[in-house]
Write a protein that binds this DNA or RNA. Sequence first.
DNA 1: CTGTTAGCGCATTCAT
DNA 2: ATGAATGCGCTAACAG
Lengths: 350, 350
Amino acid sequence: MSTIKEVAELAGVSIGTVSHVIGGSVPVSVALREKVLAAINKLDYHPNHIARSLKTRTTRTLGIVVPDLTIPFYPQVIRSAETTARVLGYSVIAVNSDDSTTRQKEALSLLRSQRVDGVLLVIASGQGSDGHVKKLIASNIPVVCLDRLPDGVEVDSVCVEDATAAEMAVSHLISRGHRRIAIVTGPLTLRNERERLAGYKAALRRAGIQPVSSLIWETKLHADDVKATCESHILRAPGRPSALFCTNGVTGLGALRCIVACGMSTPEDIAFATFDELSADDVFRPGITSVVQPAQEIGSKAAQILIDRIKNGINSRNRIDIRLPATLKIRESSGAPKKRRSSGLISSVG
Amino acid sequence: MSTIKEVAELAGVSIGTVSHVIGGSVPVSVALREKVLAAINKLDYHPNHIARSLKTRTTRTLGIVVPDLTIPFYPQVIRSAETTARVLGYSVIAVNSDDSTTRQKEALSLLRSQRVDGVLLVIASGQGSDGHVKKLIASNIPVVCLDRLPDGVEVDSVCVEDATAAEMAVSHLISRGHRRIAIVTGPLTLRNERERLAGYKAALRRAGIQPVSSLIWETKLHADDVKATCESHILRAPGRPSALFCTNGVTGLGALRCIVACGMSTPEDIAFATFDELSADDVFRPGITSVVQPAQEIGSKAAQILIDRIKNGINSRNRIDIRLPATLKIRESSGAPKKRRSSGLISSVG
DNA sequence: CTGTTAGCGCATTCAT
DNA sequence: ATGAATGCGCTAACAG
């Protein structure tokens, strides 16, 4: 890899001049510029961002940490964040936290060591101290949290209107005649999950239904755990709900797997709705009624806000909290309840 | 962000000593080490990788460029490459090429500028000069190509046994009684697509079936293009094939969409098999017969080879070409052909 | 317009 | 075992 010095020598100019034609901020005569460009080309010279960053104290790079790259929602977010960032002159590097607080700490530390100019953060749900998140934010490097919001931390954020979205989905199930609706949530240590749960409860109450704790199933965000939890509940036939609402794609797919594994199907045996898309609904059956989040907009907005903070300073304006509306895609899985013995509650409340 | 100098001052030692305790290569007395550690902790000091890299000329970072983060196969590969790399002391940064040669060039340039120690590359299919790939490899920075292989370039590679895998899937369709099988491939500028096509032809020939060009449908790797191409072929009823084989997830989903949009279904109206998983088969119908690639192993192996090259030098051994076997998951979509008017070919050949 | 120069933060000799 | 000094490649401030 050649250096700026070699380019300068080959072009017969000073390194300052080379730097100027690269940076473009200082005018250079056409003659010299062309000589420099030719040298750059001949040498296949790639400016050393490392050295540049050391000098400028800026990397024009954003870090984004997500819990799991293989959850389809995150690649969508990353991709749109990246697209937006590129337009604004930034590149983004993505790292996994495996949804573990420990790994998240390492990931953040790596990003800080790499001196990214700012970070987009989807916090991990695994327990453990989140002191490092506070520390990070306190350290004055710009941070925007997205999708999942930390508690008790002053930070810019972008996410969906959790409560409203959940309420919408549950209300829809109610409108289909369901009264006994279970919710499968991820860890309630996550604020979003709590809000989605609140939306669920609000919908029930508005319909005159009293939420019962036996229908609130909290699970870890791992397929196995979700399946095990659902099985233990669903198989307990007497209290079986007529509909299931899942607050995210992981619990959604896990619950559905459980339903199928138990020999049931949706909507015939149990109605179903979930946050996030589980499959291509135009091709695969059953079509799943889903709360679709504006993943693109979330990523794009978050990147914009972050870059704005980077450019204008962290205190340029008050905290920004963006809440984007979700869309309810109604499909077959949210059918009406079967009228049969297990629906005792329906008559008692309706 | 504090510097090594500040740590040294707070600890009352020289920066050399601080560097020594961080690096661990030079012995430091317990007393001083503890003072240093305490200072690091108090200051929330994060070593500046940038400065370190400038000095050491190594970043302990791998770059990986993939055509599209939202194709589920790639996050799997990235994730496992990352896991393997981390164990070996490397981190990885992922960037998209949008399957465009131009963007790929930019991405690679960025990575070089960032001075990654090596790159994992899934080449873009979009046309355009791939001179920059050759240049990259010629520049002696370690590169391992995975999934898709470039033509005429000496480079380590890891991918699936394309021809064998395709042949296996097509043979399976043949064993189900299909004789008129169409193939939907991505751009044949990609060597892998050509090999998969070759596997398809081999399977046909082995069964005494002459491949015909009217059943070889080449498309771009965009959902819209795939759908349009398939539509124009499938709707031409007289020559309609009784089975479809797709060489990747993008053409697979696109073709399936087309089938459904045309009011048909699989396997009833047309049998179907594809590279890559399209949906969770334990939950959604129809289950799709799929050639499943060992994504984890691909990512992990590629990372290992790359890091080996980084450590032992680019000429430490001969070119490594790893071909991993794929698995055929047989599901409903590859059912037997319907015996009806459109299957004229069956009797004429069988 | 063009060239010279002083660090950016750190790992590393080389002394001590 | 510790510290002082050097330079990695580059940008920016300045001088010419």
